[in-house]
Simulated scan of single mutants.
Amino acid sequence: MSTLPRFGMQLVTNSGFDNVKWFGRGPHETYADRKTGARIDYFAGQVKEQIHHYARPQENANKTDIRWMALHNNDGLGLLAIGDEPLNASVWPYYQSDIDFNDGAQSASGLVPVTTKHGAHAKSYYFQYR
Rank of each mutant, 00 (worst) to 15 (best):
M69C: 15
G8E: 09
Y54G: 15
P57N: 11
G37F: 13
Q128W: 00
F127V: 03
S90I: 01
V114C: 02
H121E: 11
D98I: 04
I40Q: 11
Y54W: 14
W22Y: 11
Q46E: 11
H121V: 05
L11N: 09
D103P: 08
Y54T: 11
H28E: 07
G37E: 13
M69H: 03
D75T: 04
F17I: 08
N62C: 09
R130T: 07
V114L: 14
G24N: 04
A105V: 00
N62F: 03
L77E: 06
L80R: 12
G119A: 13
A32T: 08
L77P: 00
N19F: 04
G26Y: 01
G119Y: 05
V12P: 04
R39M: 06
H118L: 15
L77A: 01
N73H: 09
G45M: 09
S15P: 02
E49Q: 09
T116E: 05
R6H: 10
H52A: 05
E59M: 14
L111E: 10
A44M: 15
A70D: 10
R39Y: 09
D18M: 06
I51P: 01
F101W: 05
R6V: 14
D84C: 12
T3E: 14
R130S: 12
K63Y: 06
Q50W: 03
F101S: 01
N74P: 02
T115M: 03
